[in-house]
C-alpha cells in the first residue's frame, strides 16, 4: 500500500493551499486597512499588500513550474 505517497500528497496539498490562502488573505486584509479612512496610517500598507499578492502569485507559479514536466525535466 502506498501510505507514504498518500501522506505526501496530503502534506503537499496542505502546505501549498495554506501558503496561497494565507498570503492572499493577508493581501486582502492589508488592502482593506489601506483603504480605511483614518488619519494616521503607515504609507507602506498598500505596497505591502501588493507584495503579498505578488508572493502568492509566485507561489502558484512555482507550483506550476514543479508540475509541468517540460520545465522540471
Amino acid at each position: 500500500m502506498k501510505w507514504l505517497e498518500l501522506v505526501q500528497v496530503a502534506g503537499a496539498t496542505l502546505v501549498s493551499a495554506v501558503t496561497v490562502v494565507v498570503l492572499y488573505s493577508l493581501g486582502v486584509r492589508l488592502t482593506a486597512i489601506a483603504g480605511d479612512v483614518s488619519e494616521r496610517k503607515p504609507a507602506w500598507l498598500r505596497p505591502l499588500a501588493y507584495v503579498c499578492f505578488a508572493l502568492c502569485g509566485l507561489a502558484v507559479l512555482f507550483g506550476l513550474y514543479l508540475i509541468i514536466p517540460y520545465f522540471s525535466k
Binding site: 498518500l6 505526501q8 503537499a12 496539498t13 501549498s16 493551499a17 496561497v20 507550483g63 506550476l64 514543479l66
Partner: peptide, 17 residues
C-alpha cells in the same frame, strides 16, 4: 486553492485522486 493543490500534488506525486 485546496482543490487545485490536491489535484496538482496528487498528479505530480503519482497518487491519483
Amino acid at each position: 486553492s485546496s482543490t487545485a493543490s490536491a489535484i496538482l500534488a496528487s498528479s505530480h506525486l503519482g497518487f491519483a485522486l
